[in-house]
Design a protein around this nucleic acid. Structure first.
Length: 278
DNA sequence: CTCCTGTCCTGCCGGC
DNA sequence: TGCCGGCAGGACAGGA
């Protein structure tokens, strides 16, 4: 569930607690998440200072003072919860890795479904890591545009909805924000990716940036499991135009009979307005 | 290459 | 009340 805005919100919430601070102790409570956790994880993290926290796509990257980088993915249900008083903190169900910071707080990586992952690599090797080697551009960065999007979609024979979920096309989008961006741009999720015109790609790139920025400003969207690092809920879910609104009017086409439709594409729910999305 | 399907996992919700 | 099936879905593996 955490998509780019949620991961960005978590990252920002975590930064004051981790950046510039030392991991005094690590509590690894199971051998694996989605993948086996790195060998000697505790020993390799203990005593390390976190120099920088950043986000790439849906991944959080913590650069450490010894040239290592820790990569975190929250998967479907992952949370990073800050507990201000580590002394009184008792690990909760599904707390798999706990970072005890030297200035007091504990940060718990909690992930009920364990679709998340954690890896530790040399910082120099980050760009070559399989997670990042072929990842598409950051939608909020300078390398993303309608032209770039058009280029990435032109060879794709799949529906544009499916293509946008592919992190090699553009980084950080998931089911919710893809639905929202396609609605904003007036593009049918069923349209073949290669048949989205250059002009529509411009509109789509703008819509993607717009919806992501608005969601970040709202602290992300809280559905089911997602929480910010401070435990608070984001509230962008109240601003969804189509996601989860099957049967409602889209409020844009002026047709009283308008009903937002839900279809399944590649096994995922898609919500859209058949009138205004072509 | 691209595309498609299966897989992982647990919590939640509706139906009976 | 409880059980059970279905669903949610990010991204990889593996086959076509």
């Amino acid at each position: 569930m955490p998509e780019l805005p949620e991961v960005e919100t978590v990252c920002r919430g975590l930064a004051p607690c981790m950046e510039g601070h030392i991991i005094a102790r690590l509590d690894q409570r199971r051998p694996d998440l989605r993948f086996p956790l790195p060998e000697n994880l505790s020993a390799r993290l203990q005593g390390r200072r976190v120099d920088n926290l950043a986000r790439r796509g849906k991944y959080i990257i913590a650069r450490l003072d010894d040239g290592q980088a820790m990569i975190l993915h929250l998967g479907m249900s992952g949370r990073m919860m800050i507990h201000d008083d580590a002394g009184r903190f008792v690990p909760e169900k599904h707390d798999h890795v706990i970072f005890y910071m030297d200035h007091g707080p504990a940060v718990a990586f909690n992930d009920a479904r364990r679709f998340g992952c954690l890896d530790l690599v040399a910082e120099k090797a980050l760009d070559a890591h399989p997670f990042f080697a072929r990842m598409g551009p950051e939608p909020l960065g300078n390398a993303f545009s309608g032209a770039v999007l058009h280029d990435a979609l032109k060879s794709r024979n799949t529906p544009v909805k499916t293509a946008l979920l592919d992190q090699h096309v553009v980084a950080g989008l998931g089911n919710i924000y893809v639905c929202e961006a396609l609605f904003m741009a007036g593009i049918s999720p069923r349209r073949k990716a290669a048949n989205v015109s250059r002009a529509k790609c411009d509109a789509l790139a703008r819509a993607i940036r717009d919806v992501l920025m608005r969601a970040i400003a709202a602290g992300g969207s809280s559905l089911r499991d997602y929480r910010r690092a401070d435990g608070e809920l984001g509230y962008f879910q109240h601003n969804f135009a189509v996601y989860g609104r099957e049967g409602e009017s889209c409020g844009r086409c002026g047709d009283d009979a308008c009903r937002i439709r839900r279809i399944v594409q590649s096994g995922r729910s898609t919500f859209y307005c058949p009138n205004t999305q072509r």
